[in-house]
Design a protein around this nucleic acid. Structure first.
Ligand SMILES: [Mn+2]
Ligand SMILES: [Mn+2]
Ligand SMILES: [Mn+2]
Ligand SMILES: [Mn+2]
Lengths: 220, 220
DNA sequence: ACTTTTATTTTGACTCTTCAAAGTAGCGTG
DNA sequence: CACGCTACTTTGAAGAGTCAAAATAAAAGT
């Protein structure tokens, strides 16, 4: 069995390789895993020996087939656990990431399958992050953001990219959660602001930076 | 935070001190934790330095107040998780111990409280083991067993002491689960056998040894 | 091209948990 | 009381994961 550390390294290589040339830098990993760079080099060398990653010294690292399989299984656990914590235990979606960070290493495949069934085989977690299937397939659909989509149109929130507790609380406060429908009233590049009108409630204004963290889908 | 190993040691000291003079032997711990005795000595010395146990060299170990508090919290997690796995996820009660052995170290107090509420604040787990309260109280009621209780009377099963998968499967097969009512037909000390008649179904015969693993309460 | 900056790797050390094997204390039996 | 068995402790070594700090390679500036 893979240790906790191994699972965390692989999962973060997977997450960081989303939308890059596929090569993940040691520095990025060190930052994400909150360890010093030397530690990453050491661990990656070990993972390469195990055939879980391919390391190109001084350039970066990518997952092998086996490594990717393992990483996807950890990510599936993480996101299904988050979904359980929010949908069943009614926990705040800004807190579940931390919990899942531990639980993802303690859950067996059998428990996971039952959790999946209990939740109705969800395709995404509470943040809109896609949940890998048991077979290791993960949706990689490309969406626009509130900073880039067409204005004066209705859109549906599909995913929140920035998942710091603060940002998630801000989003929740304005009911900007996956599934929420809203109208993009205006976007002012000069001022760097976007104005939104939710289906119900008052208008919301936010910076382009914040708007870029919210993925949306054109509606109707 | 206490590491996984520390939590396991403390939990097993607690479990093994049930019904002894309070002193747990190194050998018993080594057996329960599946490590060699020397390892236990080393670890216990460390725990004593941390003020979690009191070690009397060559005699045994007992929990301090702090150690007991921690051990009870781990045990509470273990048993609530088992209850969740059986009651909500419908897992086989012979498999949940292993799962809980991992999950007990990954669950936060907040998740635990919500789980507790979801389950309706159960007093016992699926095996009839008492669940410590959040305040660290644990019921220590004394029950008879099918090997010792009065014959020709109705009794209710309250707890299964032997929790190997095989024994639990045997018990389940005969519906000998906490809550089950049955009539103690006969006990033959010479043959070392006990005969039972469940409320519904055919009579069950089992050895005194097996019967001694099943705690019961006189009914009505 | 030469120099400075930045990213990565290497080295040596440390903590935690474990084992194998050798040493020791305590006990009961004769 | 001495012997020998058993339980316990000690010692030395190992693997996993980490950090601090020094060394090196690559990239960026001048
Ligand atoms: Mn994790
Ligand atoms: Mn998520
Ligand atoms: Mn455990
Ligand atoms: Mn139990």
């Amino acid at each position: 069995m893979a240790t906790m550390a191994v699972e965390n390294y692989l999962k973060h290589v997977l997450l960081l390789s989303e939308g890059g040339d596929g090569l993940v830098s040691m520095g990025a990993l060190a930052g994400a895993l909150e360890v010093v760079p030397g530690t990453v080099t050491t661990m990656i060398k070990a993972l390469a020996d195990e055939g879980l990653v391919e390391h190109q010294p001084r350039h970066g690292v990518r997952l092998t087939h086996d490594g990717r399989r393992l990483a996807l299984s950890v990510l599936r656990k993480h996101r299904l656990v988050e979904t359980f914590l929010v949908n069943v235990l009614k926990m705040d979606w800004s807190k579940v990431h931390e919990e899942a960070e531990q639980l993802e290493h303690a859950i067996s495949d059998e428990v996971l399958d039952r959790l999946d069934a209990l939740l109705g085989h969800p395709a995404t977690d509470p943040h809109g992050d896609p949940i890998p299937t048991r077979q290791g397939k993960i949706s990689s659909q490309v969406y626009g953001t509130l900073a880039t989509c067409v204005v004066e149109r209705d859109v549906r929130v599909v995913r929140i990219l920035e998942q710091s507790p603060e940002f998630l609380q801000f989003a929740e406060h304005h009911r900007l959660q996956p599934g929420a429908m809203l109208h993009v009233v205006d976007r002012n590049l000069t001022a760097g602001m976007v104005t939104l009108k939710p289906g119900t409630g008052r208008a919301i204004a936010m910076s382009l930076t914040a708007a870029g963290k919210i993925l949306v889908q054109p509606e109707r």
